[in-house]
């Protein structure tokens, strides 16, 4: 029944999460930053579903469903914010938005 070990899920999840965080930190384009965030959320989903597969529970899949719903909300609000920033300031790079820098 259980042929895939839990560690395999965790390693894949770790690599994808690291790639997503690198994208969030290192990309300059605002839309690609949001897409890297989606990748990191997917990595968390992999960890939850892998834990379910290991434990024989169903709670992790329910949390994964909640994460998918919240990711949809986050994409809608985040892209709305990006469009508003672009419309107000005509910038789309994370370097040019520095009003909160002390």
């Amino acid at each position: 029944m259980k042929t895939i070990p839990l560690e395999a899920f965790l390693v894949v999840s770790m690599i994808l999460f690291g790639l997503g965080v690198i994208g969030i930190i290192a990309r300059r384009n605002l839309v690609t930053v949001l897409m890297s965030l989606e990748l990191a959320l997917n990595a968390v989903n992999i960890a939850l579903v892998g834990a379910d597969h290991h434990l024989g529970l169903a709670e992790g899949q329910i949390f994964a469903l909640f994460i998918i719903a919240l990711a949809a909300t986050e994409a809608a609000v985040g892209l709305g914010i990006i469009i508003a920033i672009f419309r107000l300031k005509k910038v789309e790079s994370t370097d040019e938005i520095s009003e909160l820098r002390g």
Binding site: I4, F9, N45, V49, Q61, A64, L65
Partner: peptide, 16 residues
């Protein structure tokens, strides 16, 4: 995203 869906299927989480 499609590959991650494949991982979910191999883990037995068809609904997710």
């Amino acid at each position: 995203l499609i590959a991650v869906a494949g991982i979910f299927f191999t883990a037995g989480a068809e609904l997710v």
